[in-house]
Design a protein around this nucleic acid. Structure first.
Lengths: 125, 125
DNA sequence: CAGAATCCACTACGATACTG
DNA sequence: CAGTATCGTAGTGGATTCTG
């Protein structure tokens, strides 16, 4: 039995989970995998700007946490696919919600940024 | 008018937004602010482990993005509150969803971790 | 009490080279 | 094609100090 999760407590392991979700690539990868199993190379191409290292590393992290499953086909040349687990599917729904929120609110936020400038603006009061 | 947001494109500014949301502290802070305006010191105490620097910095980032509003009361000693904007309220709903997902699935993930060895551990490079 | 400024350890991440 | 290993660097973020 575990203590209930408390992300406000710095020693609670749920913080790690929050960090994984909040990582630079996890959300995008999880969203890609919603369509079904995807090959490594395809992921590489879909997630713009990700390096081979970070792709592998993030996939390993997601695998460790039980969100994705690695499927290695015994072929030459190698063919590896990644697929969401049930838990991962649940999380990827969340990931897509996040992504969609960003896409939906992007124009408003960018509009604001243009008016206020991307630089530091003095505190008004 | 802007191009539509495309987080899969590494040059799309929506990436920044994703990074802000995914930052180490933003989600927790946004959740705290859901109750209404909160003072700096109260935030400091609620979000376990945050440093004064990171609290201020994250609040500035959230402020600049238009998610929170800084309310400085002309008193001595100083009293400053932070309050969600309408846009911020929308985002904080999302933040709460994330937080709740983590809390809800925490036991399953921790259970897995016990059986499969340490899972989400940023320190294992 | 709020927060800016400085210092600095750590690590996240990219680039590159190499293996099967 | 998928993945590992190594190295260099920019950025993150904590501890501390200083201001009004």
């Amino acid at each position: 039995m575990f203590h209930p999760a408390d992300p406000y407590n710095m020693n609670c392991p749920s913080r790690d989970l929050l960090d994984l979700i909040g990582g630079k690539w996890a959300i995008l990868i999880l969203c890609c995998l919603q369509q079904g199993p995807v090959r490594t190379g395809a992921l590489m191409r879909q997630v713009g700007g990700i390096s081979q290292k970070m792709l592998t590393q993030t996939l390993r992290d997601l695998e460790q946490a039980g969100f994705v499953e690695r499927i290695s086909h015994p072929e030459v040349p190698p063919r590896v696919e990644y697929r969401l687990t049930d838990l991962g599917r649940s999380l990827s729904d969340l990931a897509r919600t996040i992504e969609q929120w960003v896409v939906a609110h992007y124009p408003v936020i960018m509009g604001r940024r243009e008016r206020h400038g991307p630089g530091v603006d003095p505190a008004e009061g």
